[in-house]
Structure formats: structure tokens, C-alpha cells
Amino acid sequence: MTLPRSDGPLFIVINAGSGARHASEIQPKIAALLGAADRAHRFLPAHGGGVVAAARQAVALAREQQGVVVAAGGDGTINAVAQAVIGAGLPFAVLPQGTFNYFGRTHGIPQETEAAVRALLSAELRPVQAGLVNDRLFLVNASLGLYPTLLEDREAYKRQLGRSRPVALLAGLVTLLRERRQLDLCIELEGETVCLRTPTLFVGNNRLQLDQIGIAEAPALEAGRLVAIMLRPIRGLSMLGLLLRGALGRLGEAETVTSFCLRQLTVRTPRQRRIKVAADGEVFHLRSPLQFRVAPQPLLLMVPRPDQRVEPA
């Protein structure tokens, strides 16, 4: 495929609520580095739901001026901006500002703002795979059941205690001990349909995340597939045992865990017309059936040159 130019002006969607530092602190640092490099740029600040509107504006400007759309924020912000960019065939760049930053880390993008900006200035375009659940994009993962509930609880704890990994882990422990609900799903894969009960269905599109928790199918992402994970109905202390396995990189070894590769997966919820879904940390409702699939076109990502790449950790 012919790649577009990547040396045009930068249109930066910056989320004022991502990460530990406020946008008012981050934006001047980015501007100073870009100014020193004589790189044309424009900031489009966004708050909460305003990210979608800012992303659309950035795409329109980048089309007009042969520019690059940049997302400065966490995985949720990156998802919202990528959703607007992928259909436009424009270059896309990331300046990570969130808590976990799985997408940026997977592609070797530095986590420190100054280093990320410097890497962006000489970055190279690379097509990367995206996933879809119905018409919603996901770059890291999409899920239903327990995981969306965990994310909602995590956000509630972060509002009270601050945005940090320890707070996120605390929220996860509380959710695992408390949650009792199970999902009744009918899953169609490669022409076969199976109906089952599970606390969660998780579909991953991020090699780093899947490797860290110990899912053997993680390399299948490099072959144009997604990876699904399901649990047998378990509760309480058994859930904590799975959490520990995941922390040790051994989740895939558990007898109560099933994982498999897919290009397309259809999920029906016989008891629910609409179901809560999480994609890259954002929770919303979609109408059943759900169709998980690899997006037909890649995201054109600006990735650091080898000498500026940070190894995923």
C-alpha cells in the first residue's frame, strides 16, 4: 500500500483529564519542543466527551493540510481519536499520557512526554491492526461482563483516590470479590455455535497485554487475528487465584480459562437486547448480536525509529 506523507503539520487532540499531570502542564512542553524543531502544529484541547468532536476537527484539518493527527492521552483518548482517523487514511501518532498506555508501549513509543515528542519528529509510518466490535474500534481490548464492571468501579475509585496503578489494582480486587453476575452467551465461530455461561468474554488486540498475563495465543495477533479469553463460572477466592496467575504471567495455564484465536466472532445474548461493552477502557452499550472482527483497514501509526524505540515492559 502507498503510505501518505508523514512530515506535515501536527494536529494534536489533547485530553485535559488523562494521566497524573494536567494538560496545562503538558501542552507548553510539547509546544516548546515542536517549536524548537520548527514543526507546524495546532492543539485541540478536549474534556471528557469533547474528545470525539476534537478528533473529527483534527481529521478535517489534517485532510486539508496533508497533516498528521496526534492523540495525547490514555488508551481511551487514543481509541476515540483513532476511531476518527482510521477511515480517513491519515497518519496517526500518539503521545501517551494515561495510566497503563498499553497501545503506546506495545509500539515502542516512549512514555515520557519529552522523549515521545522527540521520537515523533523522526517517526516512521507503519500499518497496525485494529479490532472492531460492531462498528466500534478497539486497539487494546474489548470485553463484556466482569471487565466492564471492573472498569466502572476503577473509575469510581480513581475519582476518590487519584489516578494510579495501585488504585486501579485495589478497585480490581474489590470488584472480583463482590461481583456475582454471569452472562448467558451463544457464540458463533467458524460456522459452529456454542451456548454457555461465563462471567466475562475478553477479546484482545494487544501483544504486550496478552503476553504479560500468559496467553499462549498472543503471537496470533501478528498473523492478522484477535485473541478471545473466557472463564468458566467461578467466584470469590477462585477469581483472586486467577488474578494472581495473571500477575505471574500464567493465566492461560488455568483449567477455568479458555482462549482461542479468531478473525470473526459473533456473540448473541438471548436474555439481553443491549449489553454493556468496554473498549480500551471506555464503557458503552451495544445492541446484540455483537460481532468481533479485525478491521478491514489498518491504522497508519507513526512509530519511533529503531534507535528511539523503547522496548515494551
Rank of each mutant, 00 (worst) to 15 (best):
M230E: 12
R273A: 15
A93Q: 09
E124L: 05
Q129I: 15
L226D: 09
G249A: 08
V194R: 13
S288F: 03
E112S: 12
G131D: 09
L61T: 10
L242P: 08
A278F: 12
L196T: 15
Q111C: 08
T256F: 09
F92I: 15
I229C: 12
L251Q: 06
L90E: 11
A20I: 03
V59P: 15
Q308Y: 00
V277I: 13
L3C: 06
F292L: 01
N79E: 12
V70A: 14
V51E: 11
L208D: 07
G98K: 14
I187T: 15
L242I: 01
R154Y: 01
F100T: 15
A82R: 13
T198A: 08
P4E: 05
L125D: 09
S24A: 06
G204W: 02
V203G: 11
Q27G: 02
V294L: 12
G74M: 10
V128C: 05
P304N: 15
Q65A: 13
P110H: 02
D280K: 14
Q160I: 03
V203S: 12
G76S: 04
D38H: 02
A171D: 03
G204H: 01
I213D: 03
I30C: 02
E114D: 05
L146W: 00
E64R: 00
V51D: 12
Q182G: 13
F100C: 15
A16N: 06
G249Y: 11
V227Q: 02
Q65H: 12
S6V: 01
A223N: 13
A254K: 07
G48Q: 01
Q182A: 09
P298R: 08
D153C: 03
I234C: 07
L34P: 12
F92Q: 15
G145W: 12
C261L: 00
